[in-house]
Design a protein around this nucleic acid. Structure first.
Length: 442
RNA sequence: AGGGACAUCGUUCAAUUGGCAGGACAGCGGAUUCUGGUUCCGUCAAUCAAGGUUCGAGUCCUUGUGUCCCUGCCA
C-alpha cells in the first residue's frame, strides 16, 4: 500500500445523505455495506478511482464495510491479469477489502438454483428464437415488442431444457433463459430480459465447469443480495436497469439492497472508455496499460501521481447525477499540491553549460547543506559539493537577455541556491560562435 | 403520441429543505519568496426559459427548452 488514509470523515454528497436518512429510520439497522464491483476485463482508470473512493469512503465514513467483488460473468473478455492489476490498484489507492474479496463466479451454483426457482414459479422460460429474431421481437423504443412463441412453454419443458443447456447439449445461441416480464413495457430493459446464455468457453476461475453463464442483470442484484449489501452504488447508465434489479430480487423473495446511481467521471482531454483504452494497448499506440500517458490508475502511478492526490481529486470533484466534464487542471492541481508538500527536491542538469568560477581556488571543494523539501523540515537535508567548475542548465543562461529574464546573462548577478552569488563577466564560444561556457566571478 | 434521468459562476460541487446563492479549480490583479515553485491578499463570475403560489422561490406548481441513458445472448 502506498500510504495510509488517516482521516475518515463522513462524506458529504447526496448518497451519504440517503445513508444518513436510512440510518435514522433504521432501514438497515444502521448497517452500511457497499461494494466495488469491477469486471476484470481491463485495467482500472481514473473513473474507477471515483467509484472506489466513493464506495470505500462511504463505508469508512459510516463505520461500515466495502467489498471488492469481481463481476466475472463474461468469460470471453476476462483474465486473471486484470483481476491481479485491479487488486493492486485498489490497494495502492489506499483502500482495503480485508477478507471481503468475492467473485460473482463464487455464486454460479446459487445463481443456477435461483434460475431454476424462477422457472418453477413460471417467471422464466427458455427461448429458442435466434438472436436476430429476439431483436425483432423486442420492438423498438417507440413500439412495443411481441411475445416469443416459446414464451408459453410448460414449466417441465423449461426445466428440462435449462438443465440440458447446463449439460452442454446445445450450441452457443441455440437457447436462452429469459425472465417472463412484459414484452410491451415502455422500459425496453424489462421486455423479457436474458438471464442465462450458452457460452462454451473456459472461465478464468471455473474453467470448463460451466457452459452457461448468468447475465449481469441477474447476477449483480443477486450478488449484492447474498453479500447483504445495503447501498448498491453504480453509475447512471444503470438507471434503466434498476426496475429489473428490484424485480429479480422481489420475485426470488430474497434480501433487497437499494441501487443508487451517480454520474460517472468525464475528464477533459482524457480517453476513458475501456474500449478505447484496450484499443490503445492492443494496437501498440502505448507501451502498455501502465503507460504514463494512459488514464489508468497504473499509468498515473507510473507517471508519479501520488495516491493521495487522486483521492483528494475524487474528494474535490464531488458526486452528483448531472452529466459532467471535469477540468484536467483540477487533477493536476491535486497532484502538484501533494507533490509540493511531500516530494524531496533534487537537481538535475539536462542540457549542461559549463561555468568556471575564475576566482575560486582550483583544488578547493566545499559542501553546502541543501534542504530536501523547504515545505517540510522533517524531510531533512543533504550535502552538495561546490567547486571551481560547475554546470548549469543552458536555459538558465541567455547571452542577449530581455529585462524580464531573471537568470544568468552577461553582466548579471544571480544567486546559486544555498551557495554563492555569481556574476557573469565573460562568455566563451567555440569556432562557430556557439556558447561553450561562461566565466564567472564570485 | 416510447420510457427514465438531469439542468446553479468558464468547470465542478454546495445552499441549514421556502429566508442575504457559498467553496474549490481555472482566469485576472497585487504582496512575500535563496525554487519563475509555494504561500498570502484582492478580484471577475451563475440559479435553462416563461408563467403561477408566497411577505419571500435555486428550492413548491404549470408549461416549455436543452442535454444524457435505454432497442447486447456486454457490464
Amino acid at each position: 500500500m502506498s500510504d495510509n488514509i488517516t482521516e475518515s470523515t463522513v462524506p458529504k454528497n447526496f448518497i451519504a445523505a440517503i445513508i444518513e436518512k436510512d440510518n435514522e429510520t433504521g432501514k438497515y439497522d444502521g448497517r452500511v455495506a457497499t461494494r466495488f464491483p469491477p469486471e476484470p476485463n481491463g485495467y482500472l482508470h481514473i473513473g474507477h478511482a471515483k467509484s472506489i473512493c466513493l464506495n470505500f469512503g462511504l463505508a469508512k465514513g459510516f463505520g461500515g464495510t466495502c467489498n471488492l467483488r469481481f463481476d466475472d460473468t463474461n468469460p470471453s473478455k476476462e483474465e486473471v491479469e486484470y483481476v491481479d492489476s485491479i487488486k493492486e490498484d485498489v490497494h495502492w489507492l489506499g483502500f482495503d477489502w480485508d477478507d471481503r474479496l468475492f467473485y460473482s463466479s463464487d455464486y454460479f451454483d446459487q445463481l443456477y438454483a435461483f434460475a431454476v426457482q424462477l422457472i418453477k414459479d413460471g417467471k422464466a422460460y427458455v427461448d429458442s428464437l435466434s438472436a436476430e429474431e429476439i431483436r425483432e421481437y423486442r420492438g423498438t423504443l417507440t413500439e412495443p415488442g411481441k411475445d416469443s412463441p416459446y414464451r408459453t412453454r410448460s414449466i417441465e419443458e423449461n426445466l428440462d431444457l435449462f438443465e440440458r443447456m447446463k449439460n452442454g447439449e446445445f450450441a452457443d445461441g441455440e437457447h436462452l433463459l429469459r425472465a417472463k416480464i412484459d414484452m410491451a413495457s415502455p422500459n425496453v430493459i424489462m421486455r423479457d430480459p436474458a438471464l442465462y446464455r450458452i457460452r462454451k468457453v473456459d472461465h478464468h476461475r471455473t474453467g470448463d465447469k460451466w457452459c452457461i453463464y448468468p447475465m449481469y442483470d441477474f447476477t449483480h442484484c443477486v450478488s449484492d443480495s447474498l453479500e447483504k449489501i445495503t447501498h448498491s452504488v453504480c453509475t447512471l447508465e444503470f438507471e434503466n436497469n434498476r426496475p429489473l434489479y428490484d424485480w429479480v430480487l422481489e420475485n426470488l423473495g430474497i434480501y433487497r439492497p437499494q441501487q443508487i446511481e451517480f454520474a460517472r467521471l468525464n475528464l477533459t482531454y482524457t480517453v476513458m472508455s475501456k474500449r478505447r483504452l484496450i484499443q490503445l494497448v492492443e494496437e501498440g499506440h502505448v507501451s502498455g496499460w501502465d503507460d504514463p500517458r494512459m488514464s489508468t490508475i497504473s499509468g498515473m502511478r507510473r507517471r508519479g501521481y501520488p495516491a493521495a492526490a487522486i483521492r483528494n481529486f475524487c474528494e474535490r470533484i464531488g458526486v452528483a447525477k448531472a452529466t459532467n466534464m471535469v477540468d484536467f487542471a483540477l487533477l493536476e492541481f491535486s497532484v502538484r499540491e501533494e507533490l509540493n508538500a511531500h516530494s524531496p527536491r533534487y537537481m538535475g542538469v539536462i542540457n549542461p553549460l559549463k561555468v568556471v568560477i575564475e576566482n575560486y581556488p582550483d583544488d578547493k571543494t566545499e559542501e553546502f547543506e541543501f534542504q530536501n523539501n523547504p515545505e517540510d523540515p522533517e524531510a531533512g537535508t543533504r550535502m552538495v559539493p561546490f567547486s571551481k567548475i560547475l554546470y548549469i542548465e543552458r536555459d538558465d543562461f541567455m547571452e542577449d537577455a530581455p529585462k524580464k529574464f531573471f537568470r544568468l546573462a552577461p553582466g548579471r548577478e544571480v544567486r546559486l541556491r544555498y551557495a554563492y552569488y555569481i556574476k557573469c563577466t565573460d562568455v566563451i564560444k567555440d569556432e562557430n560562435g556557439e556558447v561553450i561556457g561562461t566565466a564567472l566571478y564570485l
